[in-house]
Nucleic acid binder design. Structure first.
Lengths: 118, 118
DNA sequence: CTGAATCCCTGTGGATACTG
DNA sequence: CAGTATCCACAGGGATTCAG
Protein backbone atom coordinates (compact mmCIF):
# COMPACT_ATOMS: atom_id res chain seq x y z
CA UNK A 1 0.00 0.00 0.00
CA UNK A 2 1.31 3.39 -0.90
CA UNK A 3 0.68 6.30 1.37
CA UNK A 4 0.80 9.52 -0.50
CA UNK A 5 -0.38 12.30 1.78
CA UNK A 6 -1.79 14.27 -1.14
CA UNK A 7 -4.22 11.53 -2.05
CA UNK A 8 -5.29 9.97 1.21
CA UNK A 9 -8.23 7.80 0.23
CA UNK A 10 -9.17 7.14 3.83
CA UNK A 11 -10.72 10.59 3.83
CA UNK A 12 -13.01 9.64 0.96
CA UNK A 13 -14.37 6.70 2.91
CA UNK A 14 -14.66 8.79 6.05
CA UNK A 15 -16.53 11.45 4.13
CA UNK A 16 -19.28 8.93 3.43
CA UNK A 17 -19.50 7.59 6.96
CA UNK A 18 -19.19 10.81 8.91
CA UNK A 19 -22.42 12.39 9.99
CA UNK A 20 -24.02 12.16 13.35
CA UNK A 21 -26.61 9.59 12.23
CA UNK A 22 -25.12 7.90 9.20
CA UNK A 23 -23.57 4.86 10.89
CA UNK A 24 -26.75 3.89 12.68
CA UNK A 25 -28.85 4.51 9.58
CA UNK A 26 -26.56 2.30 7.51
CA UNK A 27 -26.44 -0.45 10.12
CA UNK A 28 -30.20 -0.41 10.37
CA UNK A 29 -30.69 -0.69 6.61
CA UNK A 30 -28.06 -3.41 6.41
CA UNK A 31 -29.65 -5.40 9.20
CA UNK A 32 -33.31 -4.86 8.50
CA UNK A 33 -33.31 -4.23 4.76
CA UNK A 34 -35.72 -1.88 3.04
CA UNK A 35 -37.46 0.61 5.30
CA UNK A 36 -39.70 3.54 4.71
CA UNK A 37 -39.07 7.02 6.01
CA UNK A 38 -41.27 6.87 9.08
CA UNK A 39 -40.00 3.43 10.08
CA UNK A 40 -36.45 4.66 9.76
CA UNK A 41 -37.30 7.62 11.94
CA UNK A 42 -38.60 5.26 14.58
CA UNK A 43 -35.45 3.15 14.31
CA UNK A 44 -33.21 6.12 14.98
CA UNK A 45 -34.33 7.61 18.29
CA UNK A 46 -33.77 11.31 18.65
CA UNK A 47 -33.28 12.18 15.01
CA UNK A 48 -35.36 14.99 13.54
CA UNK A 49 -37.07 14.86 10.18
CA UNK A 50 -34.70 17.41 8.77
CA UNK A 51 -31.61 15.50 9.81
CA UNK A 52 -32.99 12.18 8.61
CA UNK A 53 -33.70 13.75 5.24
CA UNK A 54 -30.26 15.36 5.10
CA UNK A 55 -28.34 12.22 5.94
CA UNK A 56 -30.41 10.12 3.54
CA UNK A 57 -29.79 12.61 0.73
CA UNK A 58 -26.05 12.52 1.38
CA UNK A 59 -25.98 8.75 1.25
CA UNK A 60 -28.17 8.69 -1.83
CA UNK A 61 -25.90 11.15 -3.62
CA UNK A 62 -23.00 8.77 -3.03
CA UNK A 63 -24.96 5.79 -4.35
CA UNK A 64 -24.85 4.10 -0.95
CA UNK A 65 -28.63 3.89 -0.66
CA UNK A 66 -31.57 4.09 -3.07
CA UNK A 67 -34.79 6.03 -2.69
CA UNK A 68 -37.99 4.64 -4.12
CA UNK A 69 -41.06 6.87 -4.24
CA UNK A 70 -44.56 5.41 -4.55
CA UNK A 71 -47.01 7.72 -6.30
CA UNK A 72 -49.83 7.47 -3.82
CA UNK A 73 -51.60 9.28 -1.05
CA UNK A 74 -50.45 9.35 1.62
CA UNK A 75 -46.89 9.38 0.30
CA UNK A 76 -44.69 6.31 0.71
CA UNK A 77 -40.93 6.36 0.26
CA UNK A 78 -38.66 3.40 0.77
CA UNK A 79 -34.93 3.39 1.38
CA UNK A 80 -32.53 0.51 1.00
CA UNK A 81 -28.83 -0.19 0.56
CA UNK A 82 -27.47 -0.42 -2.96
CA UNK A 83 -25.25 -3.37 -3.83
CA UNK A 84 -22.44 -0.88 -3.86
CA UNK A 85 -23.41 0.44 -0.45
CA UNK A 86 -23.30 -3.06 0.96
CA UNK A 87 -19.57 -3.09 0.31
CA UNK A 88 -19.30 -0.79 3.32
CA UNK A 89 -20.62 -3.46 5.67
CA UNK A 90 -17.24 -5.03 6.53
CA UNK A 91 -15.86 -1.63 7.44
CA UNK A 92 -18.87 -0.75 9.57
CA UNK A 93 -18.68 -4.06 11.39
CA UNK A 94 -14.95 -3.68 11.94
CA UNK A 95 -15.48 -0.23 13.38
CA UNK A 96 -18.33 -1.45 15.55
CA UNK A 97 -16.13 -4.17 16.99
CA UNK A 98 -13.16 -1.87 17.45
CA UNK A 99 -15.43 0.66 19.13
CA UNK A 100 -16.75 -1.95 21.51
CA UNK A 101 -13.22 -2.97 22.47
CA UNK A 102 -12.25 0.69 22.82
CA UNK A 103 -14.99 1.27 25.34
CA UNK A 104 -13.52 -1.48 27.52
CA UNK A 105 -10.04 -0.04 26.99
CA UNK A 106 -11.14 3.34 28.29
CA UNK A 107 -12.81 1.76 31.31
CA UNK A 108 -9.59 -0.04 32.21
CA UNK A 109 -7.69 3.22 31.83
CA UNK A 110 -10.03 5.02 34.20
CA UNK A 111 -9.88 2.36 36.87
CA UNK A 112 -6.07 2.37 36.63
CA UNK A 113 -6.01 6.12 37.16
CA UNK A 114 -8.20 5.70 40.20
CA UNK A 115 -5.68 3.27 41.69
CA UNK A 116 -2.83 5.68 40.98
CA UNK A 117 -4.53 8.30 43.07
CA UNK A 118 -4.74 6.17 46.18
CA UNK B 1 -23.84 -8.43 15.87
CA UNK B 2 -26.47 -6.47 17.71
CA UNK B 3 -27.39 -3.04 16.51
CA UNK B 4 -28.76 -0.98 19.32
CA UNK B 5 -29.11 2.59 18.16
CA UNK B 6 -28.51 3.93 21.64
CA UNK B 7 -25.06 2.42 21.82
CA UNK B 8 -23.67 2.62 18.34
CA UNK B 9 -20.00 1.79 18.77
CA UNK B 10 -19.17 2.78 15.24
CA UNK B 11 -19.29 6.36 16.44
CA UNK B 12 -16.61 5.65 19.03
CA UNK B 13 -14.24 4.41 16.35
CA UNK B 14 -15.14 7.30 14.06
CA UNK B 15 -14.49 9.74 16.87
CA UNK B 16 -10.87 8.62 16.95
CA UNK B 17 -10.35 8.73 13.19
CA UNK B 18 -12.21 11.91 12.37
CA UNK B 19 -10.10 15.00 12.11
CA UNK B 20 -8.82 16.57 8.97
CA UNK B 21 -5.29 15.20 9.41
CA UNK B 22 -5.63 12.16 11.62
CA UNK B 23 -5.81 9.45 8.95
CA UNK B 24 -2.67 10.61 7.18
CA UNK B 25 -0.83 11.07 10.48
CA UNK B 26 -1.74 7.56 11.54
CA UNK B 27 -0.84 6.03 8.20
CA UNK B 28 2.50 7.82 8.27
CA UNK B 29 3.33 6.60 11.76
CA UNK B 30 2.20 3.08 10.90
CA UNK B 31 4.29 3.02 7.76
CA UNK B 32 7.38 4.88 8.87
CA UNK B 33 7.39 4.20 12.60
CA UNK B 34 8.62 6.70 15.17
CA UNK B 35 8.89 10.26 13.96
CA UNK B 36 9.67 13.55 15.60
CA UNK B 37 7.44 16.58 15.43
CA UNK B 38 9.26 18.40 12.67
CA UNK B 39 9.55 15.27 10.53
CA UNK B 40 5.87 14.62 10.94
CA UNK B 41 5.13 18.16 9.90
CA UNK B 42 7.13 17.62 6.74
CA UNK B 43 5.30 14.36 6.09
CA UNK B 44 1.93 16.07 6.22
CA UNK B 45 2.01 18.86 3.66
CA UNK B 46 -0.15 21.84 4.44
CA UNK B 47 -0.72 21.19 8.13
CA UNK B 48 -0.03 24.00 10.56
CA UNK B 49 1.84 23.58 13.82
CA UNK B 50 -1.29 24.21 15.78
CA UNK B 51 -3.27 21.56 13.96
CA UNK B 52 -0.48 19.01 14.15
CA UNK B 53 -0.25 19.58 17.89
CA UNK B 54 -4.03 19.37 18.27
CA UNK B 55 -4.42 16.16 16.33
CA UNK B 56 -1.47 14.54 18.08
CA UNK B 57 -2.89 15.46 21.49
CA UNK B 58 -6.25 13.96 20.56
CA UNK B 59 -4.63 10.71 19.47
CA UNK B 60 -2.41 10.65 22.54
CA UNK B 61 -5.40 11.13 24.83
CA UNK B 62 -6.98 8.05 23.31
CA UNK B 63 -3.83 5.97 23.74
CA UNK B 64 -3.43 5.61 19.99
CA UNK B 65 0.02 7.19 19.94
CA UNK B 66 2.73 7.90 22.51
CA UNK B 67 4.73 11.05 23.01
CA UNK B 68 8.32 10.88 24.16
CA UNK B 69 10.08 14.06 25.22
CA UNK B 70 13.87 14.28 25.32
CA UNK B 71 15.17 16.76 27.90
CA UNK B 72 17.58 18.62 25.71
CA UNK B 73 18.09 21.83 23.81
CA UNK B 74 16.85 22.21 21.21
CA UNK B 75 13.77 20.19 22.20
CA UNK B 76 13.15 16.80 20.65
CA UNK B 77 9.83 15.02 20.80
CA UNK B 78 9.09 11.70 19.20
CA UNK B 79 5.72 10.23 18.35
CA UNK B 80 4.87 6.62 17.59
CA UNK B 81 1.92 4.26 17.50
CA UNK B 82 1.06 2.34 20.64
CA UNK B 83 0.43 -1.38 20.35
CA UNK B 84 -3.18 -0.55 20.97
CA UNK B 85 -3.14 2.07 18.23
CA UNK B 86 -1.81 -0.46 15.78
CA UNK B 87 -5.08 -2.35 16.09
CA UNK B 88 -6.55 0.43 13.96
CA UNK B 89 -4.38 -0.48 10.99
CA UNK B 90 -6.77 -3.02 9.42
CA UNK B 91 -9.58 -0.49 9.53
CA UNK B 92 -7.43 2.24 8.02
CA UNK B 93 -6.28 -0.02 5.25
CA UNK B 94 -9.82 -1.19 4.56
CA UNK B 95 -10.97 2.40 4.34
CA UNK B 96 -8.06 3.33 2.13
CA UNK B 97 -8.93 0.54 -0.27
CA UNK B 98 -12.64 1.29 -0.20
CA UNK B 99 -11.87 4.96 -0.81
CA UNK B 100 -9.71 4.10 -3.78
CA UNK B 101 -12.48 2.00 -5.28
CA UNK B 102 -14.99 4.73 -4.52
CA UNK B 103 -13.00 7.24 -6.52
CA UNK B 104 -13.26 4.96 -9.55
CA UNK B 105 -16.96 4.46 -8.85
CA UNK B 106 -17.55 8.20 -8.95
CA UNK B 107 -15.60 8.55 -12.19
CA UNK B 108 -17.77 5.90 -13.82
CA UNK B 109 -20.87 7.69 -12.61
CA UNK B 110 -19.74 10.97 -14.08
CA UNK B 111 -18.90 9.49 -17.47
CA UNK B 112 -22.29 7.75 -17.51
CA UNK B 113 -24.02 11.04 -16.85
CA UNK B 114 -22.09 12.60 -19.71
CA UNK B 115 -23.40 9.91 -22.04
CA UNK B 116 -26.96 10.49 -20.83
CA UNK B 117 -26.73 14.10 -21.85
CA UNK B 118 -25.83 13.35 -25.45
C1' DC C 1 12.51 22.85 17.86
C1' DT C 2 8.13 22.30 19.87
C1' DG C 3 4.18 24.25 21.30
C1' DA C 4 0.72 27.53 23.63
C1' DA C 5 -2.56 31.45 22.99
C1' DT C 6 -5.56 34.29 20.30
C1' DC C 7 -8.96 35.57 17.00
C1' DC C 8 -11.97 34.37 13.27
C1' DC C 9 -14.56 31.84 9.85
C1' DT C 10 -17.20 28.06 8.25
C1' DG C 11 -19.91 23.93 8.29
C1' DT C 12 -22.68 20.76 10.81
C1' DG C 13 -26.30 19.85 13.48
C1' DG C 14 -30.67 21.14 15.96
C1' DA C 15 -35.48 23.49 17.07
C1' DT C 16 -39.33 24.89 14.97
C1' DA C 17 -42.95 25.80 11.77
C1' DC C 18 -45.02 25.09 7.30
C1' DT C 19 -46.70 22.16 2.94
C1' DG C 20 -48.42 18.80 -0.94
C1' DC D 1 -46.51 10.70 5.32
C1' DA D 2 -42.52 12.79 3.81
C1' DG D 3 -40.60 16.26 3.28
C1' DT D 4 -39.00 22.08 2.92
C1' DA D 5 -37.69 26.43 4.85
C1' DT D 6 -35.63 29.35 8.55
C1' DC D 7 -32.99 30.63 12.05
C1' DC D 8 -29.43 29.67 15.43
C1' DA D 9 -25.69 27.60 18.38
C1' DC D 10 -21.53 25.38 18.67
C1' DA D 11 -17.14 22.96 17.57
C1' DG D 12 -13.49 22.19 14.19
C1' DG D 13 -10.23 24.11 11.66
C1' DG D 14 -7.00 27.95 10.08
C1' DA D 15 -3.77 32.28 10.29
C1' DT D 16 -0.96 34.45 13.16
C1' DT D 17 1.77 35.64 17.07
C1' DC D 18 4.38 34.70 21.24
C1' DA D 19 7.44 31.61 24.32
C1' DG D 20 10.51 28.03 26.73
Amino acid sequence: MDIQPELCKVDDALGILVGKWKPIILLTLLKEGTKRFSDLKRSVPGITQKMLTNQLRDLEDEDIITRKVYAQVPPKVEYSMTEYGKSLEPILIAMHEWGTAHTLHKMRKISTQSLDME
